Simulated assay, not measured.
Amino acid sequence: MDKRILMLGRPGCHLCDEARAVIERVAADVGVGWEERSIDDDPALRAQYAEQIPVTFVDGRQHDFWRVDERRLRAALG
C-alpha cells in the first residue's frame, strides 16, 4: 500500500493522538497507507517542527499542522 500520508509528532502529544485517529480513519476509508515519525528521533525535524506538531504531509507536501481537518484530508487524497 502506497504511503501517501506522513504525520510528524511526538510521544505524549494529545493533539498527535487526535490527529492520528483522524488519519487512521481516513486512510482506511480511502485505502492509502500512512506513516508516523517522531520529531524526537531527528534533531533537524525537532528544530523545524517542534512548535507545529502534529504536522501532516500528503504526497510529500505539508498539508496541515496542529489539527487535521478530516474533510480537507479526504479532499487532498481524492
Rank of each mutant, 00 (worst) to 15 (best):
E18R: 09
D2Q: 13
R20D: 10
V55M: 05
E51N: 14
D41I: 05
E24I: 06
V68C: 06
Y49F: 15
A50E: 13
V55N: 09
I5E: 06
S38M: 03
D40S: 14
K3T: 13
A28E: 13
P54L: 05
C13H: 08
R71C: 02
A50T: 15
D42M: 07
P54T: 04
V30L: 05
R37G: 00
E18M: 14
D17I: 13
E51G: 11
R72V: 12
R72S: 13
K3N: 12
P54H: 08
D29E: 15
R10T: 12
Q62K: 14
A27N: 06
R74F: 07
L8M: 06
A44P: 02
D42F: 10
K3Y: 07
Q48R: 15
D69C: 04
I39E: 03
L15N: 05
L73I: 02
M7V: 12
R46I: 00
G60M: 05
Q62R: 14
V26I: 05
G78W: 10
Q52R: 15
V26T: 06
D59G: 12
I53Q: 10
P43Y: 03
G78V: 11
P11Y: 10
V32I: 13
R10A: 13
A76S: 12
P11E: 15
A47Y: 00
A28D: 12
G12E: 07
W34G: 05
E36F: 15
L15P: 00
R71F: 01
E18Y: 04
R72E: 14
A28L: 06
E24C: 10
Q62F: 03
D2V: 15
G12R: 07
L45D: 09
L6A: 06
E70L: 07
R74Q: 09
R46F: 10
A44N: 08
A76P: 08
I53E: 10
V32M: 09
